[in-house]
Amino acid sequence: MKLWKLLALLSIPTALALTSGCAVISENECQAGLWYERGIEDGARGRSQATVYQIAQKCHEYGVRTDTAAWMRGHEEGVEQYCTPENGFVVGRRGRDYEGVCTGPTADLFLANYERGLAVYQAEQQYAALANRYEKAEREVYRLERAMDDAESKEELRALRSEWRGLLREMRYLEAEMMRFGGFGAFNPLLFY
């Protein structure tokens, strides 16, 4: 089975679980009825066909009948807008979930670019975590330097220096790790395309 088909099958229950607790549609939107337009919008956002069942359930609570067929026609059109290779990269680069809506010849290209974009997003998140750790270590180094100036005994000074040296080693390690992502102080996404 192709990877994109497997992802599509696995993503439907996940999408249902993630969206089951939130309002998919307001009462006013149900009353307006613009089902075809709503389908285009949901498809263009990469929402799965399971969305229409959530919409129907919510609108039923408001006493409004959903035109599922019109929504599905619109959704199909919206999915065509969504499933471009360029959009695959953008969706992945933003770290968004893919609900497996793409089929046909564009699905493989969309998924390949989605995975490339997602790799860049994940690398950027890793870099940000390293930079955050570095900043915390740097603040702690400054705190220890002030504490060493105020140390009241040789033992206290020795313990503070030991901790200070450990933090300097950690900072050097973090600097080296950040270099893998384009340099110290600068994430370079081009390394991950």
Rank of each mutant, 00 (worst) to 15 (best):
residue 1 M to F: 13
residue 1 M to G: 09
residue 3 L to Q: 15
residue 4 W to I: 15
residue 5 K to Q: 03
residue 5 K to S: 00
residue 6 L to I: 14
residue 10 L to C: 07
residue 10 L to V: 04
residue 12 I to F: 05
residue 13 P to Q: 06
residue 15 A to K: 04
residue 16 L to Y: 06
residue 17 A to K: 12
residue 17 A to T: 04
residue 19 T to G: 05
residue 19 T to E: 10
residue 20 S to M: 02
residue 22 C to S: 13
residue 25 I to A: 08
residue 27 E to K: 13
residue 28 N to H: 08
residue 29 E to H: 00
residue 30 C to L: 07
residue 31 Q to W: 03
residue 33 G to M: 07
residue 36 Y to P: 02
residue 36 Y to M: 11
residue 37 E to V: 05
residue 37 E to W: 04
residue 38 R to P: 01
residue 40 I to D: 03
residue 45 R to Y: 01
residue 45 R to F: 09
residue 46 G to D: 10
residue 47 R to K: 15
residue 47 R to Y: 15
residue 49 Q to G: 13
residue 49 Q to M: 11
residue 50 A to P: 00
residue 51 T to E: 09
residue 51 T to C: 03
residue 51 T to S: 11
residue 53 Y to R: 10
residue 53 Y to H: 13
residue 53 Y to S: 12
residue 53 Y to D: 12
residue 54 Q to M: 15
residue 54 Q to T: 11
residue 54 Q to K: 14
residue 54 Q to I: 07
residue 55 I to Q: 02
residue 55 I to D: 00
residue 55 I to R: 03
residue 56 A to Q: 11
residue 57 Q to T: 06
residue 58 K to E: 08
residue 64 V to W: 05
residue 66 T to L: 02
residue 68 T to E: 12
residue 69 A to R: 10
residue 70 A to R: 13
residue 71 W to Y: 10
residue 73 R to A: 15
residue 76 E to D: 15
residue 80 E to I: 09
residue 81 Q to T: 07
residue 83 C to W: 03
residue 84 T to V: 03
residue 90 V to E: 07
residue 91 V to S: 05
residue 91 V to Y: 02
residue 94 R to D: 11
residue 96 R to W: 10
residue 97 D to C: 04
residue 98 Y to S: 07
residue 100 G to P: 04
residue 103 T to C: 00
residue 103 T to Y: 05
residue 105 P to M: 05
residue 105 P to Q: 08
residue 106 T to H: 10
residue 107 A to M: 10
residue 107 A to W: 07
residue 109 L to T: 04
residue 110 F to R: 10
residue 111 L to W: 10
residue 111 L to G: 09
residue 111 L to A: 10
residue 111 L to I: 11
residue 111 L to T: 11
residue 112 A to I: 03
residue 114 Y to D: 05
residue 114 Y to P: 03
residue 117 G to T: 04
residue 118 L to M: 13
residue 124 E to F: 06
residue 126 Q to T: 08
residue 127 Y to F: 06
residue 127 Y to R: 01
residue 129 A to S: 06
residue 132 N to T: 08
residue 133 R to F: 01
residue 134 Y to N: 08
residue 137 A to W: 02
residue 139 R to D: 04
residue 140 E to V: 01
residue 142 Y to E: 10
residue 143 R to M: 11
residue 145 E to T: 07
residue 145 E to W: 01
residue 145 E to H: 06
residue 146 R to L: 12
residue 147 A to G: 00
residue 147 A to T: 03
residue 150 D to C: 05
residue 154 K to Y: 11
residue 155 E to R: 15
residue 156 E to Y: 01
residue 156 E to M: 05
residue 157 L to C: 09
residue 158 R to S: 12
residue 160 L to F: 05
residue 162 S to Q: 14
residue 163 E to L: 14
residue 163 E to V: 11
residue 165 R to P: 02
residue 165 R to D: 13
residue 166 G to Q: 04
residue 170 E to G: 01
residue 172 R to K: 10
residue 172 R to D: 12
residue 173 Y to F: 09
residue 176 A to E: 07
residue 177 E to S: 10
residue 182 G to N: 00
residue 184 F to Y: 12
residue 185 G to T: 08
residue 192 F to E: 09
